[in-house]
């Protein structure tokens, strides 16, 4: 579904991605784990076209999207829930969701809204409240819900557990699991919380300073002694 080959991304002279290869197949949850500054978020932004790749190729549904504009990439069916949630604080929950639906068919707006409310009943309760007054977990739900409103076929999630209490993290990951199993949504997830991410994911990649160093199924990586030492011990949440 998504194939990335030899992608290099630069911030000025700094090379953030040094030749990344990965693929995501339909119906999978793929987790990308790595330390701070490894280039995980850059990878998602490169896929979305916010920081375009200087070399390499990104192919989505057999279309080359390497040099496309972000809004066209979203129209092709990739939705992104950016790092730090980035909901619209002064807009109501409903307005935030409405913003996600700009690129989808207005006729299916009601259905999509019902789907999101079914997935996150909490959002329906808070429907008229301003986004900025939600709790961290609710904001994350809103960010995911907003991304789903564009009817994507591939959902990109950047650190959905960032700054959330352990119990809330669990809820969010359960919701991602349901999106994948019930809605057959393909998910590419970037996480520092390796334990949760790898348990949820079908496959995983480990990124270190702009390169992929390891790959395997979620279980394989969870049991890999190197991964354990670097990302799981102590960081267990």
């Amino acid at each position: 579904m998504l194939r990335i080959e030899g992608v290099h991304t630069f911030y000025g002279a700094i090379e953030a991605l040094k030749g990344v290869d990965l693929h995501v197949e339909e119906g999978e949850i793929v987790a990308m784990i790595g330390a701070n500054g490894a280039g995980k978020s850059t990878l998602l932004m490169t896929i979305c076209g916010v920081t375009p790749a200087r070399r390499g190729q990104i192919v989505f549904d057999s279309n080359d999207i390497t040099a496309e504009r972000t809004d066209n990439i979203v129209r092709r069916g990739i939705a992104c829930s950016p790092e730090g949630r980035r909901i619209f604080p002064r807009m109501s929950v409903l307005e935030n969701l409405r913003m996600g639906a700009l690129t989808s068919d207005p006729a299916r707006y009601d259905d999509n809204l019902a789907t999101v409310f079914e997935l996150f009943p909490r959002l329906k309760e808070r429907e008229g409240q301003r986004g900025g007054t939600l709790s961290g977990g609710e904001q994350q739900m809103l960010a995911i819900g907003r991304a789903l409103m564009s009817e994507p076929t591939l959902l990109l999630l950047d650190e959905p557990s960032l700054g959330l209490a352990p119990l809330v993290v669990k809820q969010i990951f359960e919701a991602i699991h349901r999106i994948n199993s019930q809605r057959r949504m393909t998910v590419l997830l970037v996480e520092q919380n390796a334990h949760h991410a790898l348990r949820l994911a079908h496959r995983g990649y480990v990124m270190v300073t702009g390169q992929i160093t390891m790959t395997g199924t979620g279980r394989e990586l969870l049991e890999n002694p190197e991964v354990k030492a670097a990302y799981l011990e102590g960081g267990h949440a």
Binding site: T70, C80, P82, I87, F88, M99, T103
Partner: peptide, 9 residues
């Protein structure tokens, strides 16, 4: 939010 805008197409 400028960036969120872009990510919503």
């Amino acid at each position: 939010d400028d960036i969120a805008c872009a990510s919503l197409g």
